[in-house]
Simulated scan of single mutants.
Amino acid sequence: MIKEECVRFHTIFSFVVLLVVMVHLYYNFAAIKQYLKVKREGVHILQSESLAAIIVILLICIGTSYNTPPLAQVMKLGESMKAS
Rank of each mutant, 00 (worst) to 15 (best):
A52M: 08
A30C: 00
C6A: 15
Q34N: 13
S48H: 14
I12C: 00
L25Q: 02
I57S: 12
E49D: 11
R40Q: 07
A53T: 14
Y35E: 04
E41W: 08
I54L: 15
I54R: 04
L46S: 01
N28K: 07
H44M: 06
H10C: 05
L19M: 09
C6P: 01
Y26K: 06
Q34K: 07
F29N: 05
R8W: 13
I57W: 13
L46A: 05
E49T: 10
G42M: 03
H44Y: 13
S48Q: 13
K33F: 09
A30W: 04
Y35K: 03
F15E: 02
F29E: 01
I57V: 15
Y26N: 01
V56C: 12
I54Y: 12
H10E: 04
E49P: 02
K39S: 13
E49V: 07
L18A: 12
S14N: 10
V20C: 11
R8L: 14
R8C: 07
S48Y: 14
H24Y: 13
L46F: 15
I45P: 00
A31P: 00
E41Y: 06
T11E: 08
I45N: 05
S50C: 06
S50M: 10
N28W: 07
Y35W: 07
L51V: 05
A53P: 03
V21W: 04
E49K: 09
R8T: 12
V21Q: 04
M22T: 08
H10P: 01
V20W: 09
N28C: 02
A30Q: 07
A53Y: 15
C6W: 15
V16L: 15
M22D: 01
M22N: 03
H24G: 03
E41R: 08
Y35V: 00
L51G: 01
Y35N: 06
F15A: 06
A52Q: 05
L36G: 15
V43Q: 11
T11M: 09
C6S: 11
I12T: 04
M22H: 03
A30P: 00
A30N: 03
F15Y: 07
V38W: 13
K37I: 05
L51D: 01
V43W: 11
I54V: 12
V17H: 09
V16G: 02
H10T: 08
F13P: 00
F15D: 01
R8V: 10
E49M: 09
Q34A: 12
H24L: 09
C6D: 07
V38A: 12
E49A: 09
V21D: 04
F13D: 03
G42I: 02
I55A: 14
R40F: 05
V17G: 01
V16C: 08
I55V: 15
V43G: 03
A52F: 11
S14C: 04
V56R: 05
H24E: 02
V43R: 13
K33Q: 11
M22C: 10
Y27H: 06
C6F: 15
A30R: 07
A31Q: 10
H24C: 03
S14P: 00
E41D: 14
L51N: 02
A30K: 08
A52H: 04
H24F: 13
R40I: 04
L59Y: 06
L25I: 09
F15C: 02
V23S: 01
F9M: 02
L25F: 10
L25C: 06
V7M: 06
Q34I: 01
F13I: 14
